[in-house]
Design a binder for these strands. Sequence first.
DNA 1: GATGCAGCTGCGAACACTTGCATTTGCATC
DNA 2: GATGCAAATGCAAGTGTTCGCAGCTGCATC
Lengths: 146, 146
Amino acid sequence: MACENETAIVLREAGQKVTPQRVHILCAIRHAGVHITASQVIEEVRTSHAFVDASTVYRTLASASDLGLVYETDMGTGEREFEWVGKDRHHHLICRPCGDVTSLDNSYLDGVATLLYEEAGFQADLGHFAIFGVCKGCQAKPRRAR
Amino acid sequence: MACENETAIVLREAGQKVTPQRVHILCAIRHAGVHITASQVIEEVRTSHAFVDASTVYRTLASASDLGLVYETDMGTGEREFEWVGKDRHHHLICRPCGDVTSLDNSYLDGVATLLYEEAGFQADLGHFAIFGVCKGCQAKPRRAR
DNA sequence: GATGCAGCTGCGAACACTTGCATTTGCATC
DNA sequence: GATGCAAATGCAAGTGTTCGCAGCTGCATC
């Protein structure tokens, strides 16, 4: 895995110690490509590497999220999901009825972030958002009154 | 409590059974006025009423959230918070460094919801949003590079 | 008022996640 | 290469939340 060195550099630049556990945890998220749950990370790391305690994984994920290396999202599934921060910032449209997840370009919320900063002085972190609602397909279907 | 009858009507209209537990749980949220955590709800109900199992509270809160009676928000405190859905829809600006929570008028995100519906056909539920970021005060303070 | 049934409740167990603490380890310094 | 320290780890215990199941209850129907 060529990304191990790269990950080590990212860690060091962030002022964190480079430990095999951290490198393996972050590599697992990076290779997942899409969202990956905490338990999937644990499983992945234990398969390819060795035993890593769950609390270590949670702590590493929390600090990586703080440092902006990964996105942490509650998709409403009961488990938190993580994603490596790539070049393209994007959001997710989550359909409550069918559970379908669609990616959404960042441009939609750029204006909101600007507005918030200008009017409220609040520097919003709109890097990764989970927007719940009802998708096109489910709107067509008849459903119970809410 | 005059709201008990009202709450019972709301429940019945939503197609749910009116049980004393549900009425008391919803009344507790209603009277809280602001955000209230799940454990506060449990405590409140047990103080004023009688023993209600935690799983019943969680199930009631989940179904009430589904029905749009309450908002469910992860404020990043580790515990989920609930709020009775009133007339005014609003959002929350949460400052990561200082933990301060500010209310935000709905108008900021109205445009986004419209845009999403027109372009993606996605009916977004932007009724209650938690936006993380850095508030004015914390931006002024010097802080570690992230 | 008796009956039937769907849906709700309480219980216990399981899962998801956090925290405190003693030990280990990366890494800067000598 | 040895040393010291802050930060990271593993462990164990604890909290928050969900789930399956057996029994109970609101409510519609007769």
